[in-house]
Design a protein around this nucleic acid. Structure first.
Lengths: 202, 202
DNA sequence: CCGCGCCCATGACAAATGTCATGGGTGAAC
DNA sequence: GTTCACCCATGACATTTGTCATGGGCGCGG
């Protein structure tokens, strides 16, 4: 009984390399391989994989969004998120998107193989260290608007630019930023953006 | 005549996958595989690879520094930098560190294989698009101190903190930041840090 | 020796940022 | 039907940031 796999990662080299790695297992077969999130569902329909390995950073549609669509449309296909690194918020979002596994790219190769076999048995697989970090980071205390403002502020936009882009007054933007700075326990915009990002609050 | 390879990448999974990929070529042999930059020279001494594939982001010693040491001590071993992201400045530094190849991780798998064969023939191999971007970014116009200040500012430090860390007066720090902002053609600290970083000026 | 670029500093000013108090509107929860 | 969280806004204020002019010291190349 071979396990049919779908690979989605925007880096061709990595995708090819992972494919080579996984094909070393006799009972694994990579049946589809795509570079864009918005090709995932199409490929899954065509090739009916048992497990889909999705990277998060991808053009078109990110891995988390792709996971949502895929699990909704093809619940028999298990989704494992395989991403460069365990930002706390990713794990939470991955779970709500219907993923049953979360493997970071610096795991040992056997860990990935093992994770695939386990999700096939119906288990959920999550890196324990990452799970702990996510619990520690906690739920985001930011309101929707605060998130919006921080997201725009990421690129280094000024208050005026943020206000223009969000159709808010400058004073309001300053207020949201001030609250966000307080909630992140930081002392300026840059740090607030940084730590909110790290904790997966954006 | 088999080509002996050394792999250095901090992500176990990627390293394993690349190894699987490269071993598919009959005349390639991965003779060493390390996760830390400061293990590169040691492994190279022990296994005498023909080509070393080095990632840049690694603990201990980054790939560029490792490349310097390696080419100095074992000039017969060709260094190819294999990294996630073609930041303009990396290429320049890689070349001065003695690398003869630079491949980005989103290249096609055949491109990597091809690059290895070509450096074995004595050629230099550089992604043409990346080379163009690097030329466009130009040499860094920043003075040493300006770089220092920007580097500290990266974490979101305030002027006072930067001044304390660098043993400068606050006014001086503000001056350097002001000049750096002007030289990068940006409008605040955040953008200056961002673009200087992207151009490899840090 | 002179000019030049880099280093460091000061002071003063304008602009942007962060804080706080205050208040009105809305919808969901109890 | 009141409470509460979120949304949006204003105004005032202190602080921080960015700009500019100015000047001294140092080392290097012409």
């Amino acid at each position: 009984m071979t396990i049919r796999l779908l690979l989605a990662d925007d880096q061709d080299l990595i995708r090819g390399a992972l494919s080579a790695l996984l094909e070393l297992e006799e009972d694994f077969e990579v049946v589809a391989s795509v570079a864009r999130g918005d090709k995932v569902v199409e490929a899954a329909r065509a090739h009916r994989p048992d497990v889909a390995l999705l990277d998060i950073e991808m053009p078109g549609l990110d891995g988390l969004a792709a996971a949502s669509v895929l699990t909704a449309q093809m619940p028999e296909c298990r989704v494992v998120i395989l991403t460069t690194f365990g930002r706390a918020g990713y794990l939470r979002r991955a779970m709500t998107a219907g993923a049953v596994g979360f493997v970071v790219k610096d795991a040992r190769p056997e860990a990935l193989v093992d994770a695939i076999r386990r999700v096939m048995r119906g288990e959920r697989v999550i890196d324990p260290a990452l799970a702990a970090a996510t619990l520690a980071a906690g739920e985001s205390p930011l309101t929707g608007r605060e998130r919006d403002v921080l997201n725009v502020a990421r690129s280094g936009a000024t208050v005026a630019e943020i206000a223009a882009k969000l159709y808010l007054s400058e004073g309001t933007v300053r207020n949201y930023l001030s609250v966000a700075i307080a909630k992140t326990g930081t002392r300026n915009r840059m740090e607030a953006v940084r730590t909110a990002d790290e904790r997966g609050w954006l």
